[in-house]
């Protein structure tokens, strides 16, 4: 192809044409901060891990514990909590391992794969948390109906008035709408992060995969 070969010929002769960077400039550059996406992924991921842990701590205050006790599910919730922490530690370990495996010395394809994997770990962590949140909401609602005296008396009142099915229907609807709202907000938030951080990476990754088909 002659056009590209014209460029190839000129390519070798262009070395002198760039403004040469001095040793001092390079020293200065070494001490500046990187703005690579790997750094951003690490920051965002740590924020996410911390965020979910704060949420779970915030909910497990003394009042909450007393409430669990009154519902009679303290023991079950303790076991659930232990399992939860084991899973969280597992996630953080896998994330750290994936993060460490990101190397600019790998082939472009492998590098992209490691970044995608690192990000996926956090994504799974978020889905896991949303699942737990949903489960907690459902259990709380069921427990509330079974144990909360106010709710029980309210329900009995409704039943005596013959609105039982409507009452249950409204309750289920309200809780489902609440769960959908929570998941929806998070979903939007993460689409945003993906959009900003990984748009270019995904586009290039797709392009590379296309070559391999």
């Amino acid at each position: 192809m002659e056009e590209l070969d014209v460029l190839k010929k000129a390519w070798k002769n262009q070395d002198a044409s760039y403004n040469q960077v001095s040793e001092n400039d390079i020293y200065a550059m070494l001490h500046r901060k990187s703005s690579s996406i790997v750094k951003w992924i690490l920051i965002v991921s740590i924020i996410e891990f911390v965020f979910w842990n704060i949420i779970s701590f915030a909910f497990s205050d003394e009042k909450y514990q007393n409430k669990l006790e009154s519902y009679g599910i303290e023991d079950i919730m303790f076991i659930v909590n232990v399992i939860n922490y084991v899973i969280v530690v597992g996630f953080i370990y896998v994330f750290y391992k994936n993060y460490r495996s990101i190397s600019t010395l790998d082939s472009t394809s492998k590098l992209m794969q490691s970044i995608v994997n690192t990000r996926k770990t956090v994504q799974y962590y978020i889905w896991y948390n949303l699942f737990i949140v949903t489960l907690t909401i459902i259990i709380s609602i069921v427990m509330m109906f079974a144990h909360n005296p106010d709710i029980i008396s309210m329900m009995n009142e409704q039943i005596s008035e013959g609105h039982e099915s409507i009452f249950i229907f409204v309750c289920v609807l309200v809780s489902m709408a609440f769960i959908a709202l929570v998941i929806g907000v998070f979903w939007l938030f993460y689409r945003l992060i993906y959009g900003i951080l990984l748009k270019k990476l995904f586009a290039n990754y797709k392009e590379l995969k296309k070559i391999e088909v």
Binding site: S36, T104, M112
Partner: peptide, 18 residues
């Protein structure tokens, strides 16, 4: 040779400004 890979990977994958 070593620098090619790191430099290209940075331009394609790590560099964020479009």
């Amino acid at each position: 040779t070593w620098a090619y890979r790191v430099a290209l990977n940075t331009a394609i994958t790590l560099y964020r400004k479009s």
